[in-house]
Design a protein around this nucleic acid. Structure first.
Length: 307
DNA sequence: CCAGGTCAAGGGAGT
DNA sequence: ACTCCCTTGACCTGG
């Protein structure tokens, strides 16, 4: 791969393996089942999910894909217990360690994208406490895997809400950031939002990067829908400037379903396939593709735009 | 086996 | 006040 090339990846689901062999990292359960079946069943599903992760990583290597976002569903309900409480945690840890070693040996870059319920800037203390617990738990999984304690293995989130005052929310975000476990803090990144009322790349630069120094994940699709304070070129480069030396910038790319596939769709909705490539100005970076066709979208993107 | 209803969390937007 | 959306569709039940 050349220095100026784009490395492409996808998120969570491998449709090929899911359809062929029911291989999925997303086995989970609803609350009722969690309450009735408990940690034993959690353990069972987690073991299945981690085994599937290994298979997906192998598929990625076979198909020359070296960027992959892991699902947060690998351990069902993991905000409700400590990993050490799981009956077969040692076996699962061993499998995770193998997955991590396999990924590192084969040059696969792994990340997490915890859900929108993680709000580090919330004025609600309990929400913040839960968020910190959950982000640290994501980081512990990466620790089990032996992944780097850096943005090489990023844990990417959004700021959350504005709560009627962006400045105050950003300030709370930064203060609460300091309460994260060391390894979690070293992995954390923030992403620009897809709504005009939330946070642009520039706002994150001023409000987060300049305060606590964490890199910004630039999302091309969100950029079109967020606050319009910079053009694409400048936003991309501003985000790029936040990535530490030696760690490739990571971005997200998707196309709008509304523009290309269904006029009635919300502008935020992701298309199934790709119609325009990610513009990287010939700068080397990693791009997670977020279209609905997952790994098939990556293969088709490569054929279409990287002949 | 399948279709259809249901499902944790925080916050915002559209109705 | 209610519903839907989002990291990520999967779970569960009744036919």
């Amino acid at each position: 791969m050349s220095k100026s090339s784009i490395n492409l990846g996808y998120a969570c689901i491998n449709m090929t393996l899911a359809e062929q062999d029911s291989i999925s990292c997303n086995r989970s359960m609803i609350k009722r089942t969690f309450l009735s079946k408990g940690l034993e069943y959690v353990s069972e599903l987690a073991a299945i999910n981690v085994h599937a992760l290994q298979k997906i990583l192998e598929w990625n290597v076979d198909n020359n894909i070296n960027i992959y976002r892991m699902t947060s569903c690998m351990f069902p309900w993991f905000s409700e217990y400590e990993f050490d409480q799981l009956p077969n945690i040692e076996e699962i840890k061993n499998s995770l360690k193998s997955c991590g070693k396999y990924a590192l040996d084969n040059g696969i870059r792994l990340s997490f994208h915890p859900g929108p319920f993680n709000c580090l800037g919330s004025p609600n203390e309990k929400t913040v406490d839960k968020t910190i617990y959950e982000l640290n738990a994501h980081s512990k999984i990466m620790d089990f895997m032996g992944l780097p304690e850096s943005n090489q293995s990023k844990i990417n989130i959004h700021v959350g809400g504005s709560y009627g005052n962006h400045e105050a929310a950003l300030s709370r975000f930064c203060n609460n950031f300091k309460r994260l476990d060391d390894a979690t803090a070293k992995r954390l990144t923030v992403e620009n939002d897809d709504r005009a009322s939330l946070y642009s790349t520039k706002m994150l630069y001023k409000g987060v990067y300049e305060k606590v120094g964490i890199p910004i994940v630039f999302d091309s699709h969100h950029h079109e829908l967020g606050p319009q304070d910079l053009d694409y070129h400048d936003a991309f480069h501003l985000a790029r400037s936040t990535w530490p030396t030696g760690i490739r910038q990571q971005c997200h790319h998707s196309n709008s379903k509304r523009d290309y596939e269904m006029t009635s769709a919300r502008p935020q909705a992701h298309s199934d396939w790709y119609y325009t490539p990610f513009e990287n100005y010939n700068e080397g970076c990693d791009v997670v593709l977020e279209c609905k066709t997952k790994e098939l979208g990556v293969l088709s993107y490569r054929e279409k735009f990287l002949p």
